[in-house]
């Protein structure tokens, strides 16, 4: 347990080290907004998304995006569901930024390529689980509700409610562990680079 906590602390340090580069901060912010808005759009059902691609004017489309952005940050009231969305979006943003850092920083040998691919898969699985978990299954509005409704008829949306929670929890846990692993790798890279420069001096 103590070792795990230490690894988390080092991972956090690793994340901070990566974010000292403004490029990764900018990337993280963009990815955070992208994931957050995507999850928020899907949480609201299909109306806002369909309006975005309908005959609405450019100004109206911008207004829809701003409304969803505001909702993401609780403009119409913060809820546990919104907080979960923000946390998952943050973990996803950090995971993909850290992944890019790893790909650039590490030597391109076969073992590293294999490891990077594995981490991409983990981050991708986390993102997919997050998307599957979105929506208000309680009112039958979720990505997975229509297909479960087709299979399970009237109890479909109740099953969707349970499964969406399972997916959301799984997304949260997987995303956290992906960030922890990548953050720890980031810490190791920075530590070895500091030692390299110290030796040169």
């Amino acid at each position: 347990m103590e070792r795990w906590v230490d690894e988390c602390k080092l991972a956090f340090d690793g994340v901070l080290q990566v974010l000292k580069n403004w490029r990764y901060v900018a990337l993280s912010v963009l990815l955070f907004l992208f994931f957050g808005m995507l999850l928020s759009f899907l949480n609201n059902g299909s109306t806002e998304l369909r309006l975005l691609f309908s005959n609405t004017s450019l100004g109206e489309k911008a207004s829809i995006m701003l409304t969803v952005l505001g909702q993401m940050f609780g403009a119409d009231g913060m809820s546990f569901s919104r907080i979960l969305t923000l946390v998952i979006a943050l973990f996803q943003a950090l995971a993909w930024s850290l992944l890019l850092f790893m790909i650039k920083a590490k030597k391109k040998n076969k073992a590293d390529k294999k490891r990077r691919l594995s981490e991409i898969e983990e981050a991708g699985v986390g993102a997919s689980l997050a998307l599957l978990g979105t929506g208000c299954s309680g009112c039958g509005v979720s990505l997975i509700a229509p297909i479960l409704g087709t299979i399970f008829s009237s109890s479909g949306h109740l099953i969707a409610s349970i499964t969406s929670w399972v997916f959301t929890l799984a997304a949260l846990i997987l995303s956290f562990f992906t960030v922890k692993k990548l953050g720890f790798d980031g810490y190791v890279i920075h530590a070895s680079e500091r030692r390299k420069y110290a030796r040169k001096d």
Binding site: N44, T47, E48, R50, L51, E60, S63, T67, G140
Partner: peptide, 10 residues
């Protein structure tokens, strides 16, 4: 469509 998360403008 389904779901609603806006206002009168929506």
């Amino acid at each position: 469509s389904s779901g609603f998360g806006g206002d009168y403008a929506t």
